[in-house]
């Protein structure tokens, strides 16, 4: 009988990743935990504060309001991007030159850096020189994202939909392409209508990739900073101050490192919980062969 060879030296191959993760995630996280229980006035001097910052933050309306806005933002963009992405994927040419053309065009927004997207929309929406803003003003629609809350929200949501619907569409398209033709043939034999084909063949077969799309979009939108910051700067007032914008204002603007550290740890815990739920659902879907 052949003996299974074991080579423990292979563990060293994991070392670069461990070092990378330690410096990019573990050590900063530990530092944030240390900051969250202390007070500082700069100069690298720290004073023990215990759980005071956590208590302050839990009773602080500012954080809860930012969390509400964040959940609303993520909920709205998911409710738009997922169905829209599926709709686009269903209507894309399945093969040939046009299919490739569509794929390239759809990928373009994904390649643009966040701050550039923000700048594009910031100018695009301006009432004086922006195509969108000027057109809406010419049509008599009262639109001004710097002064009106609804306008600001519509702008950042439309911007996110423009930037990221392609990702959902591309993932859904990949899911659709993987369905064998035999399923459609069987549906035709059964004279299934278009809705039945979508409901009982395409949607279940796309479930796995759609979960990945929802997870990616939720996490990205929950941590979004650059785009809304460039467009609205969190305003008007605090209307578009999402969690990360509020956090940066607190940590770097006000230099309240202790409260900001407590805030970011709670933010981190929420993200960790939601990621774990999504991950568990995805793994279980995988096991069911979807």
């Amino acid at each position: 009988m052949q003996q299974k060879t074991t080579n423990q030296k292979a563990w060293f191959l994991v070392l670069p990743v461990l070092i990378l993760v330690a410096f990019s995630a573990v050590i900063p996280l530990m530092t944030v935990v240390n900051y969250s229980v202390q007070d500082t006035f700069g100069n690298n001097q720290f004073f023990w504060a215990g759980l005071e910052w956590f208590e302050d933050m839990l009773g602080d309306e500012r954080m809860w309001n930012a969390l509400q806005r964040q959940l609303l933002f993520s909920g709205i963009i998911l409710a738009i991007e997922v169905p829209l992405g599926i709709f686009v994927a269903l209507n894309m040419p399945k093969s040939g030159v046009w299919s490739s053309f569509c794929l390239v065009v759809m990928s373009l927004p994904l390649l643009i850096p966040w701050n550039v997207v923000g700048t594009i929309w910031q100018i695009f929406g301006r009432v004086d020189i922006g195509l969108l803003g000027a057109t809406l003003a010419a049509l008599g629609i009262d639109y001004n994202y710097t002064q009106d809350t609804v306008s600001a929200w519509v702008t950042i949501i439309v911007m996110d939909v423009w930037h990221w619907t392609s990702l959902v569409a591309l993932l859904a398209f990949a899911g659709l392409k993987s369905i064998p033709d035999a399923y459609y043939q069987a549906a035709r034999i059964d004279q299934a209508n278009r809705w039945a084909v979508f409901r009982y063949i395409e949607l279940p077969k796309m479930a796995g990739v759609l979960m990945i799309a929802i997870l990616l979009r939720f996490m990205d939108s929950f941590m979004i900073y650059t785009e809304p910051f460039v467009v609205t700067g969190g305003g008007p007032g605090n209307a578009t101050t999402l969690l990360s914008i509020d956090l940066v204002k607190m940590a770097l603007g006000q230099f309240d490192l202790g409260p900001a550290a407590a805030f970011s740890l709670m933010y981190f815990l929420v993200i960790l919980l939601i990621s774990w739920v999504f991950y568990t659902v995805m793994v279980n879907l995988d096991k069911k062969g979807l």
Partner: peptide
């Protein structure tokens, strides 16, 4: 390690 602002309780927590 000064910049990490370690305290005994947080060190015990991570430990």
């Amino acid at each position: 390690m000064d910049w990490m602002a370690w305290t005994w309780p947080t060190a015990a927590f991570f430990g």
